[in-house]
């Protein structure tokens, strides 16, 4: 198992956001986390990347307990995240944003090669490399967020709502690229409100409701699950 979460609890002050979540992600998988607004999807992501402290439970990464590890150390360990709202540094150029993605790396030649690879995945970014991140369109920012998350050569990439605010055609394109990234050897855990896309592309998925996991299974199984269809796919 690359990632194992055991009985994870997270509190915001007195409010409990996650109630004992357990999930696993195996090497080479694409796993989706779906659920309504406020179900705790982003909180789960933030707990994995270290922006939120777990109040109870354990997070194991590659067999090591990282529950108490600082967020910046987890990047070195091999976790990267394209956060909710994309988190583009608005005052930095596209190039500088990508350099930030490789902040922990010292192998300059390989970083340059990876930057080239990102520009091949997202030719739009290459055109705009000198432009400040804040002036990009929503879709371009999403591409930059994903590209930047690749720059640390992560073992596990966390994608928080990669489809948010994008046109349907762009969503398909982004998911195509996510599949491609997996083909190149990166494991992916993604959070989505667009359950249709997420379930049809993911190997496995978990359904999160008010801070607890209520269902799990292969993406194709959940896609035909009547309860899931009713609640998240907008079809009766």
């Amino acid at each position: 198992m690359l990632l194992e979460i055991e009985d994870l609890n997270v509190h915001y002050g007195r409010i409990q956001a996650l109630h004992g979540i357990s999930l696993t992600v195996d090497e080479g998988e694409i796993v989706a986390l779906i659920g309504a607004n406020g179900a705790g999807k982003s909180t789960t992501m933030r707990a994995i990347s270290g922006l939120r402290r777990a109040s109870a439970g354990r997070i194991l990464f590659g067999g090591d307990d990282i529950t108490r590890m600082r967020a910046d150390r987890r990047v070195v360990a091999g976790i990267s995240q394209a956060p909710e709202g994309r988190g583009i540094f608005p005052g930095m150029t596209v190039l500088e944003n990508l350099t930030m993605g490789a902040y922990t790396r010292k192998d300059k030649a390989a970083v340059a090669a990876d930057q080239q690879r990102v520009f091949e995945l997202f030719p739009r970014l290459a055109e705009r490399r000198k432009q400040p991140g804040g002036t990009l369109s929503g879709g371009e920012q999403q591409m930059l967020a994903i590209g930047r998350a690749l720059m640390s050569r992560p073992k596990l990439m966390l994608l928080d709502e990669p489809s948010m605010g994008l046109a349907p055609m762009l969503i398909r394109q982004i998911f195509d690229i996510i599949l491609e990234i997996r083909e190149q050897g990166t494991t992916i855990l993604l959070v989505e409100q667009n359950a249709q896309q997420a379930l049809s592309r993911a190997d496995r998925a978990y359904v999160l409701e008010t801070g607890a996991i209520t269902r799990s299974g292969s993406g194709s199984d959940l896609l035909v699950d009547p309860a899931v269809r009713d609640a998240y796919l907008g079809v009766a």
Partner: peptide, 24 residues
Amino acid sequence: TKFGLGIRSVAQDEDTAALMGVNK
């Protein structure tokens, strides 16, 4: 410089800076 980039990243968005591996 890279150190300067780190400072600017924390100034602009400290959470995302941490996700990039910047030690705040």
